[in-house]
Write a protein that binds this DNA or RNA. Sequence first.
DNA 1: TCTGGGGTCCTAGGACCC
DNA 2: TCTGGGGTCCTAGGACCC
Length: 424
Amino acid sequence: MQPLMALVDCNNFYASCERIFQPKLEGTPIVILSNNDGCIVSRSNEAKALGIPMGAPYHEWKHELQRHRVAVFSSNYALYGDMSRRVMNILSRYAPHQEIYSIDECFLDFTGIANPEAHAATLRADIRKCTGIPVAVGLGATKTLAKLANYCAKKRSPWLNTGICNLSALTPDSLGLLLDSIPVSEIWGVGHRTAPKLEARGIRTLRQLAKADSKGLRKSFGVVMERIIAELNGTPCLELEEVCPDKRQILSSRSFGELISDLPNLEAAIANHVSHGVEKLRHQHSKATLITVFIRTSPFRRRDPQYSAHSTVTLTVPSNDIGVFQKAANQGLQRIYKPGFRYQKAGVILQAIEPELIRQTDLFAEPPDERREQLLKTLDRINRQYGRETLRTATELLGTKWHMRQALRSPRYTTCWEELPWVG
DNA sequence: TCTGGGGTCCTAGGACCC
DNA sequence: TCTGGGGTCCTAGGACCC
């Protein structure tokens, strides 16, 4: 049976989430800012039409946004995460297999579905009715073609009208014509570094890429390129991944609300990242053996003296004890901290992650401490029930300068009792 | 004044072993 | 004085994604 893959992608997801709870913003341009209100990470169609680019620094565009009366929001991940769960939940009913690829998109296995376009239309209407979120659906024989079809559903007529594009329904000739009209930079897996290199070899369109010598290109671009070409020609190389594998590395990092020079504030920031990272580690029932601490000054402040450093601490045995990691992280920080710099960002990375069931003990390690484990579990439970950061380690309170700016955040309408929307 | 955060995979090169 | 070659593991860095 001919395989058929669907990619469902929410349109302007964050902007759409905000609009649901403020219907008066229908038709108004909306932008969402990154953490720290740094840059623009999501735009409604109206905002895109004003020429506001993705990733633009907010402070450079503030004036222009005001001039056009654009509604501006800080990012509200509690809201987007919850809306995402609702959307994914509904989508899971429309296919036997689902891969949740990101907060706003998923692959569905449509193989064997009699009328895939009608099925996609029902799905779109259902999502719209139950959540208010508009989605586009791309259909193709491989994941890469489904992604491409989704791009067409959002950008190209005639599919723009329905929000559904099925590349498997095209004749080879019309598919060829379509591929010839799309630049290589639009395909999944070719980024801003690779596209110019392909163009330098005369490969400018997807049709040219599909017909290119994939073995030859593999020598220069690696196996990833070979797979892209095969997928573009309808040969699946990428499996649908239904179960989300455990994280192999956990990163927590953030720019500071204001620049920091002193050690106590850095210690507080790092301690907070350690809590956050270890919480994720415990959530997936894993332990880690490596923790890397990093700090850096702002690369955008060219006149400031620049410094960037990282330090990795190896534990003797894998752990998921916050105290152990706080201590290790602090050692790492002491090694790299230099006074006299204005730091802009810090973070920690947990690596060498393994399931907690594997108990690899060191000859000299202490036996497992049941009371300590009970304490940590209680900490998890309290923070889960009453919200993150209800209980914190003392180091986290050494300073607050690192707290991020979030001046324009909307209420957590769906996840916080105090912030439920009022219907009057 | 103000420029995100969190991930994955792949590759090359070094260390080490037999 | 001559000083192999293949395999594995690990790490750092690059590229990409959302």
